[in-house]
Each structure stands twice: as structure tokens, then as C-alpha cells.
């Protein structure tokens, strides 16, 4: 929260201060898509640093490149050029399977449409990252139950997603995102599919997680949602337009 705002004119994050490595250090990231003969520059020389424990909102209209930025920062996609350091590890050149491992270990995803497995119970959904992290069954269960307790859904552990309300589903998704103790919680429009009251509940939950020391990256186009974060990065046309702490 005390992380200084890093306007684009500031010294390159590559020269970040020594000490605890930043959770995210993106240096001159670009992402170019080839659409037929046309080249689309979805990310254009983006540099960004996010410290441990920060709560940052990435904002921008649709088509601004914020989704691409989120995909790259979430290791779902690799940049065309530039460097991306996640917790001190350069990940932009890793293979697909290595990226899968990074995602599993370091990143918790919360999606707008929840993306829960419909035929599995809440508990099984929360366990899923642990399965791919090769955690033993009894420990998986214990940790998943603990996470469900933290989001207030321990009594709903055996329910399937269609037996849960939208807010409950998103809380299950948040529990799943946190179950592997990731370095970064990446929430992509987490309230986009919720009514304003449940949306508020989810945002309060994120606030609480932030208070507990989690590093959160919130992607949204909704200024009201973005305002919850301590710092806002505005993206437009693939570039960072502004990067400032919220008052």
C-alpha cells in the first residue's frame, strides 16, 4: 500500500531498489498479434512494478489492452518482447508446461464468469489447483475446507455450483484462487456478473484479503470497483496512460 506510484516517466523498473523482489516486474512488454497481414499491437512497451501486498486496479475501456496485460501478467500468454519477472523469476521465455507450473504455484485466478466445474462440488473445485500441484488427498481436503471456511462457505462444501448463488460461486472461485497460497491474486472483472450488493460483498472480501497481506491485481472497467484498490493503473491503446495511488 505504501508502494510509490510509478508514473511512466519514472526510472525504469529494471532499476528497482534492491531488497525483497517485487511480485511483478514488467519491463518494456509488448504483445503483437498478427491478424492476417495486419499487425495489432495489443501491448506497447509496458513497464510496471507491483510490490508485495499491493492492491492494484488495472483499468481501461474494452479494447485498451488491459485483458492482454492481464493474460501476460497471469502467465496465460507470453509477451512478444520485453521481460516479465514474477517473484524474481524471468517467466516470459518459459515453455508452456513451465508456465503451467508457475500459474499453479504463483497465481490465483478469479474470473468474471467464475469458471467453476459444473459437475464438481465446491470442495472439489477448490481442491483443483492442489491436484495439479500434486498435493496428497487428505491434505488437499483439509486445505480446501480451510479456504472455504475463510470465505464463509464451509457449510456449502458439498454443493455443486448450480446449487449456489452467484456471490457464493465467486467466493468458491476466490477460495480456489487462494488455496495454493499464490504470490498474486488476479481478479478479472470479479463483480461483472454479480448484482451490486453481492458485488459489494466480493469487493469487501478482496479488501479483507488485502488486509491480510495478499497481493491483488484487479482488472476492471468500472471506476467504482477500481476505486477500492490502493493504486490504479490506467491502460489505453496498449500503453499505460497513468499510474497513481488512489486517494
Amino acid at each position: 500500500m505504501t508502494a510509490p506510484a510509478a508514473p511512466q516517466t519514472a526510472p525504469s523498473p529494471a532499476a528497482a531498489p534492491a531488497g525483497a523482489p517485487a511480485v511483478i516486474r514488467a519491463i518494456h512488454l509488448s504483445k503483437v498479434y498478427e491478424l492476417g497481414a495486419q499487425q495489432v499491437r495489443a501491448l506497447d512497451d509496458v513497464s510496471l512494478e507491483i510490490g508485495k501486498g499491493e492492491y492494484v486496479a488495472i483499468m481501461g475501456p474494452s479494447g485498451s489492452g488491459k485483458s492482454t496485460l492481464m493474460n501476460v501478467l497471469g502467465c496465460l500468454d507470453v509477451p512478444s518482447s520485453g521481460e516479465y519477472w514474477l517473484r524474481g523469476q524471468e517467466v516470459s521465455k518459459l515453455s508452456e508446461d513451465e508456465l503451467a507450473e508457475i500459474r499453479n504455484r504463483e497465481i490465483g485466478f478469479v474470473f468474471q464468469t467464475f469458471h467453476l466445474l459444473a459437475r464438481q462440488t465446491a470442495l472439489r473445485n477448490v481442491e483443483l489447483p492442489l491436484v495439479y500441484g500434486a498435493v496428497r488427498a487428505d491434505e488437499r481436503r483439509a486445505r480446501a475446507l480451510e479456504l472455504l471456511r475463510q470465505v464463509g462457505l464451509e457449510k456449502r462444501a458439498d454443493h455443486k455450483p448450480n446449487e449456489l448463488s452467484g456471490g457464493e460461486r465467486q467466493r468458491v472461485a476466490i477460495a480456489r484462487a487462494l488455496v495454493n497460497r499464490p504470490a498474486l491474486l488476479l481478479a478479472d472483472e470479479p463483480t461483472g456478473n454479480l448484482d451490486s450488493r453481492t458485488g459489494k460483498e466480493i469487493l469487501e472480501l478482496l479488501d479483507r484479503l488485502h488486509g491480510e497481506g495478499h497481493t491483488i491485481l484487479l482488472v476492471t472497467h468500472d471506476p467504482e470497483v477500481g476505486r477500492r484498490a490502493a493504486r490504479t493503473v490506467r491502460v489505453r491503446d496498449g500503453r499505460i496512460e497513468s499510474d497513481a495511488p488512489n486517494r
Binding site: D97, A100, Y132, N180
Partner: peptide, 16 residues
């Protein structure tokens, strides 16, 4: 497809 995407996002390797 979406399930596969999700599993991959959560850390499933290709082989799995």
C-alpha cells in the same frame, strides 16, 4: 474447451 482452458489456467500441464 472451457474446462480444459480452466484446468490449464490452474496449472494442468499438456501431458495431463
Amino acid at each position: 474447451t472451457r474446462e480444459v482452458g480452466l484446468r490449464k489456467a490452474l496449472g494442468a500441464r499438456r501431458g495431463m
